[in-house]
């Protein structure tokens, strides 16, 4: 066996496998994976649902602490039962959260402030997301403002410098209290 191999070695003086073709094959595979790879990250609006209620009533909320936003099925926005528009939400949220007991209509403190978003069952999803987005943007501006007071460019910059597990003081002061109310006019609802 060894003799046979020796003989073959003698035949080919170069004695190497031609690897030039290898590169071509792997290039083809590489191009295939380059094309199929998508580095898309999922983006969206993050929310945390309240834990399921076990026959206990949710804690009562004072009416003044709750900013009620209703998006009707025709797209009409109602803030505290008054006709309004999507562009008003952000401003209203800011006055509501940062009221600190000044006005009787708005919250006692940012900690107690709650924003409730309610929709009709037939309200299109885009209307609901638009309202939620506006509320989130309102909160983000408050957070950004607080971060700037601490000498950061934005709330995101403040959050990035926090060590893992460290307390987020801004979030602690102004918690994101958004409640999604059960839809009104539940025609043919099948929630169990």
């Amino acid at each position: 066996m060894a003799g046979l191999l020796d003989k073959r070695d003698d035949d080919r003086v170069d004695g190497e496998i031609d690897t030039a073709g290898m590169a071509d094959i792997s290039f083809l595979l590489l191009i295939f994976f380059l094309i199929t790879t998508t580095f898309e990250t999922d983006t969206g609006i993050g929310m945390t649902l309240p834990p399921p209620l076990n026959d206990q009533q949710p804690p009562p909320v004072k009416d003044r602490n709750m900013l009620k936003i209703l998006v009707r099925q025709d797209g009409q926005v109602m803030i505290e039962e008054k006709a309004s528009s999507f562009s008003q939400i952000q401003r209203k949220v800011k006055t509501h959260v940062l009221n600190n007991g000044k006005s009787d209509e708005y919250s006692v403190s940012p900690d107690d402030a709650l924003v409730s978003i309610k929709t009709d069952r037939a309200t299109p999803y885009s209307g609901y997301i638009e309202a939620l987005d506006e509320v989130k943007m309102g909160y983000r501006q408050i957070h950004d403002q607080r971060a700037r007071q601490r000498g950061f460019d934005s709330y995101q910059a403040y959050k990035n410098q926090l060590e893992a597990g460290a307390e987020d003081a801004i979030r602690e002061q102004i918690p994101l209290n958004i409640s999604i109310a059960e839809p009104s006019g539940s025609g043919g609802g099948s929630s169990s």
Partner: peptide, 10 residues
């Protein structure tokens, strides 16, 4: 975006 939010609530 045109789906009914009632279904989402369920």
């Amino acid at each position: 975006e045109d789906a009914e939010s009632g279904v989402l609530r369920d």
